[in-house]
């Protein structure tokens, strides 16, 4: 029973880490980034390459983050910016980008599965329960990340500008906020977060060219249900991720795989605002 509670907490942490890059882009840019899955995959390969190069696995996450930010800025400039007035087209373009990225990985690394070394191996004993050390570390990182993101939005100048753009972009522009720059930075940040998240979760799983795909839909659901608020995202990850763990453990893993999607769709149908007010 105790390990189920740890499963719930760590699953929620992983979901939060994976979805946060998507949320920041959706919040500020009103853009649902379908390339998010491909960015996660890119992070996974970054972790794999770091491991293959013999660098300490602890560096894989920051390295992936930096690669993601640079790549994100590049993509924003070439693909996203021209489509800012056509939101549904922007979705499609990011989706196309996702295909291109995953095909490039398939051409470079092959279709097969690759593994990345874990910085922490084995289990540790917490409250009398043996549990995977790395999963616990990921959850701790998720909590730190949540605090850092909330602080970024509420304490920094960029956060203030970003919140202004979230609430009313035209007015923000009228006040002299360079919304183009805010958007570019946001996309870079979102892509960086996604890549870092990919690098963070790869040691738990494995990486292949389509690794990000299963995470993509779950992240969409979590983000749609939480509106634009990191505390809500944390709550949504906990509630939906928790239900997923319970259903997988006690009923069937296949049903568990569908839990987040189905549950989130039902919640949104009955209350289109989801958890955003919670």
């Amino acid at each position: 029973m105790g390990s189920v509670i740890f499963d719930i907490l760590t699953t929620a942490g992983i979901l939060f880490v994976v979805a946060s890059g998507l949320m920041i882009i959706l919040g500020v840019m009103k853009l649902l980034n379908f390339a998010h899955g491909a960015f996660l995959t890119a992070g996974g390969y970054a972790a794999y390459l770091t491991g293959a190069a013999g660098i300490s696995p602890w560096f894989s996450v920051p390295l992936a983050g930096i690669v993601g930010i640079v790549f994100g800025l590049l993509v924003e400039r070439t693909i996203i910016r021209p489509l800012y007035n056509r939101p549904l087209d922007a979705i499609l373009a990011t989706w196309g980008l996702g295909i291109v990225i995953s095909q490039i990985f398939a051409l470079t690394f092959g279709r097969g599965v690759q593994f990345a070394p874990s910085p922490l191996s084995g289990t540790i004993e917490v409250l009398g329960i043996e549990y995977s050390a790395y999963r616990l570390a990921v959850s701790a990182i998720a909590v730190l990340l949540a605090i850092a993101l909330i602080a970024l939005l509420s304490l920094t100048r960029f956060g203030l500008n970003a919140r202004a753009v979230i609430v009313n972009e035209n007015l923000a522009r009228g006040l002299g906020i360079d919304s183009t720059r805010v958007r570019a930075i946001t996309f870079g940040l979102g892509a960086g977060l996604a890549c870092a998240a990919g690098a963070l979760i790869t040691p738990l799983l494995s990486v292949d060219p389509n690794m990000g795909l299963p995470w993509l839909v779950n992240s969409f659901m979590l983000v749609l249900i939480s509106g634009v608020s990191f505390p809500s995202l944390l709550l949504a990850s906990l509630v939906l991720g928790g239900t997923q763990v319970l259903i997988s453990t006690f009923i069937s893993p296949i049903l568990g795989g569908m839990t987040i999607v189905v549950l989130a769709a039902m919640i949104l149908r009955l209350n289109p605002k989801g958890f955003s007010r919670a």
């Binding site: 649902l32 939101p87 549904l88 979705i91 839909v217 969409f220 659901m221 749609l224 069937s252 296949i254 049903l255 795989g257 569908m258 999607v261 189905v262 769709a265 039902m266 949104l268 149908r269 289109p272």
Partner: peptide, 30 residues
């Protein structure tokens, strides 16, 4: 019924249509 109601956003509807084949494939697997 899930995707279209007054006040639903087009993005939400798209996500529902995206979830449909994924859920269906899971059902087939199971």
């Amino acid at each position: 019924w899930l995707a279209f109601f007054h006040g639903s956003s087009p993005i939400y509807a798209s996500i529902i249509t995206l979830a449909l084949p994924i859920v269906l494939t899971q059902v087939i697997y199971s």
